[in-house]
Design a protein around this nucleic acid. Structure first.
Length: 649
RNA sequence: GAUCUGGUAGCUCAGCUGGUAGAGCAUAACACUUUUAAUGUUAGGGUCCUGGGUUCGAGCCCCAGCCAGGUCACCA
């Protein structure tokens, strides 16, 4: 219940009682019981009561009472959303600003000449800065009588502002300082300021404000996060729900969050520069695909109405990029938003970004050299060094990286040489190593399981794992010299895969057989086996040059390079379950409404009758009746026959 | 999907054999012309996630649900 109770009488001074009665009732209803006589107010007499529980102001109602006109604010418990005390205060401040003739949301451009960071840098170099203007959010205010300090946060950081009453208000009228600045300017509001730069006694570079302009009012209080003199952050918003659902708040308030995303973009730019400098072409390929190909994953399905066909959100863009190589490009790449309808955890978001690049006339050996150069450059571009801390390990992305074949890796970490084994032998090895398997798994999958369980985690520093079994890699060219294997590598770091590359399979007959083998896997129950993309095969039949392709999970790489251990920390808006709909507290609860509806049809009525007709349990009845009473909607009277309930007022 | 942990003021968090709640910051008021996680004094602010149950009485105990996080499983 948030209402201002206010009533006043015009016309007859003596009839204050009517107004007073209304307000007194309201004051009682909200539990305070106190109200204030106002005396003359605009020629009217009145009285008012306000408390945090009964604001903002409800609609005024007008009625006649013995010839006097009473305007009364009446209880209306369900007319608006609940606002916290601070939100109400801000809305009131907004109104006050408007009343003073200031537009809290002006349309005009505000000319900004400097940024917070720019001012600090230039001024520290000794430059005079007589006239600067900048804009941003007010993040704190420290008022000391006629002088005040505030902090302004723009896109580059924070800078202190100094306000002096007599300089902001050179004339007699000090409203701008005393009212607008001191009272109605809230944390989070956007303002523009003009002034000159100076250093305070404590040595803080500050802007001495001569003029400030409202640029946008903030109606919701931001969480207060403070950083002390030692750089220790206090009361940071930790709640993941708030941080990810309301990323804007996280960005405004938590130090260092922006930097992560800036680095993420730098990573993409660094890749682009590298690829473009080699003359490779950035392209775009379909996200809505009739056949989801290029990876083993469950897709999202959607439907195109006009064509009346199912379409899939892409799980990879590989097959399309290869079509472009068929078409005659030497090198094509794409940052590909992919969608996979699978579980979510610290390293999986349903939509994620991969970078894939395909270069003609190259093989996977070349691609390894290319990849390590790419990552070395990116690492330097982001952090100024090839070294980066991830948790408590230091990763070094300086090229070259060790090359280890998959069989060597398994031999090293299990002591078992599986290079000559068939499916049955591998099955036995898995059992011996305590690895869970199921009958749908083929040879390649079994090897992959062993690697995943026993080897992967050991490759903390960047390492290429090469030469995978053919069964796991239906789009990859058979190894030039090792039967049963393909020319594939994956790059591991911190025990996780961050890149995957092939000498691409360009033999259309082999490719068709591989797809058919996938179909066989699907029949065995592997629901992620690839579908056959006939058009892709047709493209290959026209001829594709030898090509090497590389895919990098950009999100996971960004995590590595920013020392973030959750994918949600490097996605602006990670996927979340929908917020539950705001419960309509404004309305009466179901039970309260039930009782009130029965009662309003025949008020007053016997309390026991009402209870029986409501059909509520003792406890529910009790809770609902208390609530109704508290809202001032019902009134219980004791008579000789028993208890009677009536609609109050 | 299994399992564990959490959900209390705008924010960060306390709370106790079960007796309807506390702190800091934020907010409001006053003081103060260079402070800085400003300070001092005072005040207001809470359906203790939701719904059931046990109880004379539940923020606390029990059950179910919702949301978030961790671990495992599945999955790149």
């Amino acid at each position: 219940m948030r209402i201002v109770a206010e009533a006043f009488v015009s016309g007859f001074g003596g009839i204050l009682d009517g107004a007073e009665g209304l307000v007194a009732a309201l004051a009682t209803a909200c539990g305070h019981g106190k109200y204030e006589k106002r005396g003359k107010d605009n020629g009217k007499e009145g009285c008012s009561h306000s408390c945090a529980k009964i604001r903002p102001k409800p609609r005024l109602q007008k009625c006649n009472l013995n010839g006097a006109v009473i305007f009364a604010a009446l209880i209306s418990t369900h007319m608006h959303q609940e606002l916290s005390e601070q939100e109400q205060v801000r809305r009131e401040a907004l109104q006050e600003i408007i009343n003073l003739g200031i537009d809290p949301f002006p349309a005009a451009e505000y000319t900004v000449t400097h940024t917070a960071e720019g001012i600090r840098d230039t001024f520290d170099e000794g430059a005079e800065m007589k006239d600067v203007s900048l804009a941003g959010r007010v993040m704190s205010k420290r008022i000391m009588g006629k002088a005040s300090f505030a902090e302004l946060q723009d896109s580059t950081g924070r800078i202190q502002l100094y306000f002096n009453r007599d300089e902001v208000c050179p004339g007699e009228d000090k409203t701008l300082y005393n009212e607008v600045f001191k009272k109605h300017l809230d944390r989070g509001d956007f303002i523009g300021v003009r002034g000159f730069v100076f250093k305070t006694q404590v040595g803080e570079t500050s802007v001495h404000v001569l003029e400030f302009t409202f640029l946008g009012k903030s109606l919701r209080p931001l969480p207060v996060v403070k950083t002390d003199a030692d750089g220790v952050v206090h009361d940071a918003v930790h709640d993941a729900e708030m941080r990810y659902r309301q990323r804007y708040v996280d960005l405004v308030v938590n130090p260092g969050v922006k930097e992560v995303f800036v680095k993420r973009t730098k990573l993409f730019n660094s890749f682009r520069e590298f690829f473009n400098s080699k003359g490779y072409l950035e392209v775009e390929t379909p996200i809505l695909q009739p056949i989801p190909g290029g990876a083993a994953a469950r897709p999202f399905i959607t439907h195109h109405n006009a064509l009346d066909i199912p379409l899939y959100m892409r799980i990879a863009n590989e097959l399309y990029l290869k079509r472009l190589i068929v078409g005659g490009f030497d090198g094509v790449y794409e940052f590909s938003k992919n969608f996979r309808n699978e579980g979510m955890d610290r390293t999986h978001n349903p939509e994620f970004t991969a970078m894939e690049i395909y270069v003609a006339y190259k093989d996977y050996e070349w691609m390894m050299r290319f990849t390590e150069q790419l990552l070395e450059k990116a690492c330097i571009d982001l952090n100024g060094s090839t070294k980066v801390m991830y948790g408590d390990v230091e990763l070094d992305f300086k090229a070259p990286y060790p090359r280890v074949t998959m069989f060597e890796a398994i031999q090293t970490h299990t002591g078992i040489d599986i290079s000559a084994m068939e499916e049955d032998g591998l099955r036995q090895v898995c059992k011996d190593l305590g690895i869970e398997i199921d009958p749908t798994m083929g040879k390649g999958k079994l090897i992959d399981e062993i690697f995943g369980a026993k080897c992967e985690k050991n490759y903390v520093q960047p390492t290429f794992i090469t030469d995978y079994p053919v069964e796991m890699s239906p789009l990859c060219k058979k190894h030039r010299s090792k039967p049963g294997l393909v020319e594939r590598f994956e790059l591991f770091a911190t025990g996780k895969e961050i890149a995957n590359a092939y000498s691409e399979l360009n033999d259309p007959i082999d490719q068709r057989q591989r797809f058919e083998h996938q179909l066989a896997l699907a029949d065995r129950g592997d629901d992620e086996a690839m579908m056959i993309d006939q058009d892709f095969l047709r493209a290959l039949e026209y001829g594709m040059p030898p090509t090497s392709g590389l895919g990098i999970g950009m999100d996971r790489l960004a995590m590595l390079l920013t020392d973030k251990h959750t994918i949600q920390d490097i996605l602006f808006f990670p996927q979340m379950k929908p917020e539950k709909k705001e419960t309509k507290k404004v309305e009466l609860s179901g039970n309260e409404k039930l009782i009130f509806d029965i009662l309003s049809k025949s008020s007053p009525m016997d309390l026991n009758d009402l209870k029986i007709r409501s059909g509520l349990s003792g406890k529910q009845w009790d809770i609902s009746m208390k609530a109704l009473g508290k809202l001032g909607l019902t009134k219980v009277t004791k008579t000789e026959e028993g208890l009677t309930v009536e609609v109050a007022g």
